[in-house]
Amino acid sequence: MRFALDNSHTDFAASIDSLLGKSDTPAVIRAWNSGDTGPGVKLWQRLAETGVTGLLIAEEHGGLGADAIDMVVAVEQLGKHAVPGPVAETIAVAPSLLAQADPARLEALAEGSLATVAAPPAVPYAVDADAVELVLTVDGSTVSTATPAAVHGSVDLSRRLFEVTTAEQLGTADANRAFDLGALATAAQLQGLGKAMLEITTEYAKQRKQFGRVIGSQQAIKHHLAGVAIGLEMAQPLLLGAAMAVRDGSPTASRDVSAAKVACGDAAYRASRIALQVHGAIGYTQEHDLSLWLTKTRALVTAWGTPAQHRTRVMEAL
């Protein structure tokens, strides 16, 4: 099995990275945190122009007709830049559900509309239901539109969690596949977050001085950062392998997705802990950009299935 990405994938990732790198995402995130979703929606529109929101949507509905590997490549970059909003729901879950339940709604997603999904019991809340055009809920295999109800906070201020009330029934869909896509997209976000925190922390360690020495010259710091790098490197083939399994409809797809979600979550969480240790307490203050990556990582570790739920799926499959 070949895990290496080809040039089309790396070029696509580089184009998204370049777009987001010029978009001052920390400012966009802070605006979203305060309730001003305008800058974030504009950023999503620019992403839609690159085809990101239509990756898993068929060409006949205005999308690119791409596969799970393309989705993972793109979403990892969104994770790297901590893009706010319902990333997994808009790019992966909603297209999967609507392709079967109500294909007429797909074109709006491809054009940049945002969607969110609640799929109890594993996903009891719809993320950012007040900032999207379409809220869906799944009951068994039945897909319906929904309206936001009570809101709950998250450790990540850019994630508002809404209870929902079922509205119009749309049709039926394979909820298990949609869940796998949601977990896979979340794993890709976590992988991107982990890589970003490693880069941020490595640069900080090269500049920060204590007692006249750059802290990055200390062996203990090097060992911690090396451990983070190894964890992320080991998670990458699991992430790409899971994407291939989903793309090919492999009977092991659910197991592979769960393994990737656990590995990427563990690697990103370790990256966040080491980043905080190296930066010190300032890294967790709202004024420091690192906090935006730290809190999003903590929230996504349990999104679209907790580590315990995914480990259980792996053990049951084995």
Rank of each mutant, 00 (worst) to 15 (best):
R30G: 03
V73W: 09
G216S: 02
V132F: 04
A94D: 09
L157P: 12
H224P: 00
M234P: 00
D24F: 07
G265K: 08
A48N: 08
V41T: 14
L181Q: 02
T201S: 08
I91H: 01
T202F: 05
D139M: 11
R159P: 02
T50G: 09
C264Q: 12
R255Q: 15
A259D: 08
L55E: 02
A268S: 14
S258I: 11
S272N: 09
N33Y: 10
N7E: 15
A196R: 15
G249R: 14
Q169S: 15
E89F: 04
V301E: 07
A260F: 05
L276V: 07
R160P: 01
V262K: 09
G265A: 07
V93D: 06
P251G: 06
K209R: 11
A122T: 14
A275P: 13
V214T: 12
D130P: 00
I200D: 01
D6E: 14
A68K: 02
V87T: 10
V214D: 05
L300I: 04
A13S: 14
Q219K: 14
L134G: 00
L43E: 07
L78A: 08
L157C: 11
A118D: 05
I274E: 08
R247V: 12
Q189I: 12
C264Y: 09
D180T: 03
L276Y: 10
S34D: 12
L19T: 07
L64I: 06
K206H: 11
A149C: 05
G51Q: 11
G194L: 10
V135Q: 00
K209M: 03
L97R: 09
W293E: 02
I16Y: 03
A150K: 13
A88F: 03
H9V: 10
T53S: 08
A275L: 09
R273S: 15
E316A: 15
R313V: 09
T137Y: 00
V155K: 10
Y269L: 13
Q277H: 12
Y269S: 13
L161T: 01
G63L: 08
S291N: 12
G182T: 00
L157I: 06
V87S: 07
G153V: 11
I57Y: 01
W32D: 05
D11F: 13
F179Q: 08
A235P: 01
H223F: 13
A126Y: 00
D289R: 02
L193G: 05
Q210M: 11
V262A: 13
A167Y: 04
A118T: 04
A146V: 02
G231L: 04
E60I: 01
V257I: 04
D70G: 03
E316G: 04
M1E: 11
G140N: 05
A92R: 08
D17P: 07
Q189W: 00
R159K: 15
G171K: 12
V214W: 03
A245P: 07
G38I: 08
T302G: 00
A220K: 11
A115S: 07
R105D: 00
N33P: 02
R311N: 15
A150N: 12
K209F: 01
G85Y: 11
V127R: 08
Y269R: 14
G194P: 07
H279M: 09
L5R: 13
A167W: 03
K296H: 13
R213C: 04
